[in-house]
């Protein structure tokens, strides 16, 4: 780790709890690098998480950090941002935390367009509890609760976020790190609800169950399967099957929620 990045970590809390080969550290590192590149005021950054492997990340990061209940990070984060819009809010969450138990909070935070950057550590599995399928587990993949193969259809979180009203939507991967850092920077600079779906690897639970226990093999698979948004636009649905489309999907300027509420305050006070 570069020396200038050390101040962003709680070095006494390391080593982390993640398994060897886990991609969570890569995303955590990318988040910190993006924050450093943007020179955000450390004491004004607030990182909120739910429950799961990824939600442990804030504990290692030297900011105002809040490790909440399962799926509820965005609800807590909404309260923080509403109360103090000067704080820069990030939500670090997993695919299960965000899209299953937290799905309702996710679509409503997106709908409000509240200025929160949500970064999903999407490893397609519940890691903390030992490898159960999540709403992001691909169909036919194996998990401890899908011993015969998963029959659930999986969410495309980017499409879900965009249709719910998120105003910045992108997907990165733990393989394409320089791009990931850039995407996080873009998301952080965006005024409004931003969603970054980060395709991540869990060799311990997803890999082992799905004949890919080597992190290198999983990384290679991400590299092989990834196509850019631009290339994807020229590909047929058949060609896109199983592919990971990465890059920016959506960006728009829409009034941000706490700014809108500031107008409510103005109106209410003017009406006195």
């Amino acid at each position: 780790m570069r020396k200038e990045l050390q101040k962003y970590f709680r070095n006494d809390k390391l080593p982390h709890i993640w398994c060897p080969g886990c991609g969570h550290g890569i995303i955590t590192g990318a988040v910190v690098r993006a924050i450093d590149n943007l020179k955000l005021n450390q004491s004004k950054v607030c990182i909120v998480s739910g429950i799961g492997c990824s939600s442990r990340a804030p504990g290692y990061m030297n900011f105002n950090t809040l490790h909440t209940t399962h799926g509820r990070a965005l609800a807590f984060a909404t309260g923080i941002k509403m109360a103090n819009p000067d704080l820069k809010i990030l939500v670090l969450t997993g695919d299960g935390d965000c899209s299953a138990i937290g799905g309702n909070h996710f679509i409503h935070a997106a709908r409000r367009n509240i200025d929160i950057t949500t970064i999903v550590f999407n490893n397609s599995i519940y890691g903390m509890t030992g490898g159960q399928y999540s709403p992001m587990t691909p169909k036919a993949a194996f998990a401890t609760t899908a011993p015969y193969g998963n029959i659930d259809r999986n969410f495309d979180l980017c499409k879900l976020a965009q249709s719910a009203g998120a105003t910045y939507v992108a997907r990165g991967t733990v393989f394409h790190v320089p791009q990931l850092i850039k995407l996080i920077e873009k998301a952080l600079k965006h005024k409004g609800f931003s969603l970054l779906d980060v395709v991540d690897i869990c060799p311990t639970y997803f890999g082992r169950r799905n004949k890919m226990s080597s992190p290198i093999a999983m990384m290679n698979k991400i590299r092989e399967m990834s196509v850019t948004v631009r290339s994807a636009s020229k590909m047929s649905e058949e060609e896109l099957s199983g592919k990971i489309v990465i890059g920016e999907f959506h960006e728009e300027r829409v009034p941000e929620y706490t700014e809108e509420y500031a107008k409510v305050i103005e109106k209410a006070q003017g009406g006195n």
């Binding site: 509820r72 807590f76 909404t78 309260g79 923080i80 509403m82 109360a83 103090n84 006070q269």
Partner: peptide
Amino acid sequence: LPKLGGKFIQMEDEIASMGAIIGASLTGF
């Protein structure tokens, strides 16, 4: 609340409302 510069938000459910007030309280509200 807005008349006093305070904040009101109608959340998506009671779970979220409880989470939001905890978050707001952490900022001193």
